[in-house]
């Protein structure tokens, strides 16, 4: 598989297959509507807006309430920015290319993480025994999607902060 992200001078070129673009759009739309739904008991919202204070329920409630609007707003901005970036894609030999500046690349990294967290929360990844899954189980597909987004994240990290992947991003004896 060709690399999805490549540094080009002070920019980063994102190159995705049309099927990846469709996948990102549908994941993005799904999370957007979950956030718009605002159901505090939804596992995705519980994961994206987690506990803040330990040992003091009143303080936890108060701080969560204080942080919620800002956190929600920045997540919505990220999701909408991703949609705009994908719209900006230019077709190139069967791929779609998007030119990102450093800030946009960091934003994509964060949105990819939110999308993975959302899938993980939806399928209950915390208590999942991956090895026991039937390959035809839809959950196995969701896990494969998470892995794919992780692979995209690792490539972005290698460009944005090479030190962060120094020993973990590469396959090999010390990975």
């Amino acid at each position: 598989m060709s690399r999805a992200f490549r540094r080009q001078g002070d920019h980063i070129r994102m190159q995705l297959d049309p099927v990846e673009i469709d996948l990102l759009r549908s994941l993005r739309d799904g999370l957007r509507s979950t956030l718009d739904g605002g159901d505090a008991d939804d596992p995705v919202l519980r994961r994206l807006f987690p506990a803040t204070v330990v040992g003091d329920d009143a303080a936890d409630h108060e701080l969560r309430r204080l942080l919620y609007d800002d956190l929600l707003q920045s997540r919505l901005v990220g999701l909408d920015a991703l949609a705009t970036l994908l719209d900006r894609g230019v077709e190139h030999r069967g791929h779609v290319r998007v030119r990102l500046d450093g800030e946009e690349a960091a934003l994509v990294l964060g949105v990819l993480n939110d999308l993975r967290l959302a899938i993980g929360a939806r399928i209950g990844v915390e208590s999942l025994e991956r090895d026991d899954l039937d390959p035809d189980d839809p959950v196995a597909y969701r896990l494969a999607v998470m892995d794919h987004l992780a692979w995209l994240q690792e490539q972005l990290l290698a460009i944005l902060d090479p030190a962060s992947v120094a020993h973990y991003g590469r396959p090999g004896p010390d990975a």
């Binding site: 967290l117 990844v125 998470m146 944005l160 902060d161 030190a163 962060s164 992947v165 120094a166």
Partner: peptide
């Protein structure tokens, strides 16, 4: 957390706290 990548966590720590590698 079972989802966050090890490299991503290192990246976040460096960004938020300015920690060395």
């Amino acid at each position: 957390d079972p989802v966050n990548l090890m490299s991503y966590v290192v990246f976040v720590f460096r960004r938020v706290f300015g920690f060395t590698e």
